[in-house]
């Protein structure tokens, strides 16, 4: 276990550097937006009759810097605010801090994306093992074809199709909000039930969009493990097939964790479509609303938080991998 802590520290430092780079990117992006939105906001407030001092305080609260300061001072102010978890103030939701908005939005995205990843990972891996172990039977071909087919459907189309099929053609699932509007949010049984019922389609959209990839990667991984010597040895020693499949699966799962890191980014990216279609007020939804309403502080904040979520999820995935595979710990 001795290499674990330095590795963790290295990963976290790398993550922090990456977050700072992304923050710098959003800072310069705001400056590149045509029409100088920061200056425009200041002018707009001043012409609306707000005193110049008051207008400056408001703009400073929104963006974290003032337009007439030198660029380096603006940059330092901006980064300083972000390090204090202050992402500015929203323009559309006047006076509300971006941090507050995003903290409220975060659970919607994180919970649905995580459930989607877990469901697709588990189901995909089971399918992959079945395909590989019974690869000379008809079921294997059928499952391969099915997985390849699902793998080829983009998230956007998948989510639209699911929404269309199961809320309009066969109205099984509710549509349009994360819970029934008549219920008051709280830790009550009907409310939680409604939350889960409404989450079925979005989670299914996340899960189905990445399921095929897992099944196909697991299949080839299992097939390569099947050729290993220890499998032959276990067979010769007469281990039960069920125990052998357990050994095989545990070894074959390992390479999939490198794919997991890429998948996490893909899933968080897909939240943009899925939350727009199923009307979930998550991070992706915030990002689109912000761009649509020219709410640049909220846009920069949402983008930063989505990236942070991906970086944190990657670090966690890396550590699950280290915990499972004893070989890379040394």
């Amino acid at each position: 276990m001795k290499g674990l802590l330095p590795r963790l520290i290295k990963r976290i430092l790398g993550g922090i550097v990456m977050i700072l780079v992304v923050a710098s990117f959003t800072f310069f992006l705001i400056h590149l937006i045509p029409g100088n939105p920061v200056e425009a906001k200041l002018m707009q407030l001043e012409t609306a009759g707000v005193t110049p001092l008051r207008a400056q305080i408001e703009v400073q609260a929104m963006y974290g810097f003032l337009p007439h300061q030198p660029l380096d001072i603006q940059y330092i102010h901006y980064i300083w605010q972000i390090l204090h978890l202050n992402l500015g103030q929203s323009i559309t939701y006047a006076g509300v801090s971006v941090t507050h908005l995003l903290l409220e939005a975060m659970p919607w995205t994180v919970i649905t994306v995580t459930s989607g990843i877990i469901v697709s990972f588990v189901v995909g891996i089971l399918t992959g093992v079945i395909i590989a172990v019974y690869r000379d039977r008809g079921i294997s071909n059928a499952l391969t074809l099915f997985s390849t087919f699902l793998h080829g459907i983009p998230q956007l189309i998948l989510a639209l199709l699911l929404a269309f099929l199961f809320t309009t053609i066969w109205p099984i699932f509710p549509f349009g909000s994360p819970y029934d509007a008549v219920l008051t949010p709280g830790f009550t049984l009907p409310f939680i039930g409604s939350l889960i019922w409404h989450a079925v389609l979005p989670v299914a959209a996340y899960a189905i969009s990445s399921y095929g990839g897992w099944a196909l990667t697991m299949k080839s991984s299992v097939i390569s493990v099947l050729g290993d010597d220890f499998i032959l040895a276990s067979e010769l020693r007469g281990l039960k097939p069920r125990i052998r499949i357990g050994y095989i699966a545990r070894n074959a799962i390992l390479p999939l964790f490198t794919t997991l890191t890429l998948s996490i980014g893909f899933m968080f990216g897909g939240s943009v479509f899925i939350e727009e279609i199923f009307d979930y007020r998550g991070l992706g939804y915030m990002l689109i609303t912000a761009v649509g309403n020219l709410d640049y502080p909220l846009m920069a904040g949402s983008f930063l938080i989505i990236t942070v979520a991906v970086i944190v999820a990657n670090i966690i995935a890396d550590f699950v991998y280290t915990a499972i595979d004893p070989r890379i710990r040394t």
């Binding site: 980014g265 990216g269 990002l287 983008f303 989505i306 991906v310």
Partner: peptide, 9 residues
């Protein structure tokens, strides 16, 4: 690492 689609947006 940066999710591509949000970046495009």
């Amino acid at each position: 690492t940066i999710p591509g689609f949000p970046l495009l947006i």
